[in-house]
Amino acid sequence: MDAMNTKRQEDAVNKMVQNEIKMSGKDVCVSYGEKQALFDVNLDIPAKQVTALIGPSGCGKSTFLRCLNRMNDTIDICKVSGDIRLDDQDIYDHDIDVVELRARVGMVFQKPNPFPKSIFENVGYGPKIHGLVRSKSDLEEVVVKSLQRAGLFEEIKDRLHEPGTGLSGGQQQRLCIARAIAVSPEVILMDEPCSALDPIATAKVEELIDELRENYTIVIVTHSMQQAARVSQQTAMFHLGKLVEVDETDTIFTNPSNQKTQDYITGRYG
């Protein structure tokens, strides 16, 4: 009886931890010049879980993702309104330093984009610019650890000083993930990280995402229903710039409440 109680308590605690909100968007609207891309999106990102954003092309899911670390700032004509919070702090506030924000919210892109430098320098890039390491041996430690966490170290430990662009596509993408986690972010945003990879490399990256969930909050944009189902705990469905439905992944895929979601995940359109 006691054991059962403890178990129940643990479950409750787990549930609470799971429900802790890492990031939240409230009434987020985004427009590129005249064209509005997002309409009043309200979405909470739970901590240490994988949130998948799905929806047909052009539905605004990547736009939303890029709001979360203010990558849209680099596009001149892009205007963001609404309230986006990281640990209850408005990230579009004037006091917020975008450099610090991006150190806390890392990003992995659709196409692997390693810098034209060695593997070591690629991973060491973030720690160096943020001054996270004091000495060369510290840097080495961070680089090796990040590569290990990204599951890449064993494959490439003999060629750390060869160019990162010489790796295969899947390895490059894992290198980009290693680069992102080298600055110990709290949130990792992934914009279709597997769309340029073959099935085997995809499986490896998915496995990695699942492991990373232990330490990081992850938001992933994906076009693959199976991928969303495999790696995420929460799924949000976007359509034409609006958030159609958000729920636990199991619920979305077994019993969606919205007809559009139902149609999309069963492949009837989109």
């Binding site: 450099v99 990003m107 892109f109 390693p114 810098f115």
Partner: peptide, 23 residues
């Protein structure tokens, strides 16, 4: 994409240019 990669790491414009774009 290279610039985006660097910005996403929290690099400033001048860091991005000096360390990624120019090389």
């Amino acid at each position: 994409t290279l610039r985006d990669g660097s910005y996403a790491m929290g690099a400033t414009k001048s860091e991005t240019i000096r360390r990624v774009v120019l090389p």
